[in-house]
Computed example of a mutant assay.
Amino acid sequence: MASIDLDKVLDKAWADKSLPEILAAPVGALKGVSDRDGELLQQAFGVKTVADLAELKYVRWAQALAALDAAK
């Protein structure tokens, strides 16, 4: 399993939180995602939390396509 540097992907306010807290956090907890971005994701896809974003079928499809490309 790949590791991830939480300091690189989370806003500073979330870097010391537990994984369950991070997954329940609004998507704005991710570095580079603004509150407005979060509002737009909620309007477009019903995404409210980091976990919702991870489960979004379009994200999964894009990841699968990228993995197929990397495997060739």
Rank of each mutant, 00 (worst) to 15 (best):
D37K: 01
A70H: 02
G38D: 07
T49G: 06
P26K: 13
D16Q: 14
A2Y: 08
D52H: 11
L6V: 13
R60E: 10
A44Y: 11
A51N: 13
I4C: 12
V50Q: 06
V59S: 01
Q42R: 14
K31W: 02
S3T: 15
K8M: 11
L56H: 15
I4T: 10
V59E: 00
L41A: 05
A44L: 10
K17A: 15
D7A: 14
L23Q: 14
R36K: 12
V9P: 09
R60K: 15
D69P: 00
V50P: 00
I4G: 00
Q63W: 06
K72C: 02
A54C: 13
K12M: 09
K48Y: 02
W61L: 08
L53H: 05
A51E: 15
K48C: 03
D35R: 07
L65K: 09
A15Y: 00
A62V: 07
A51D: 14
K57Q: 07
K12P: 01
G46Y: 07
L65S: 01
Q43Y: 09
E39C: 01
A15M: 11
P26Y: 00
A54V: 08
K17S: 11
K48P: 02
A13S: 15
K31I: 03
L19S: 10
D37P: 00
M1P: 13
E55S: 12
G38N: 03
K8G: 03
Q43E: 12
P20C: 02
A44R: 12
L10N: 06
E39K: 10
L10W: 12
Q42S: 09
L40C: 02
D11S: 00
A66P: 00
G28F: 03
A71L: 02
E21G: 08
L68D: 04
A62G: 08
G46P: 08
I22Q: 06
D35N: 08
D11G: 06
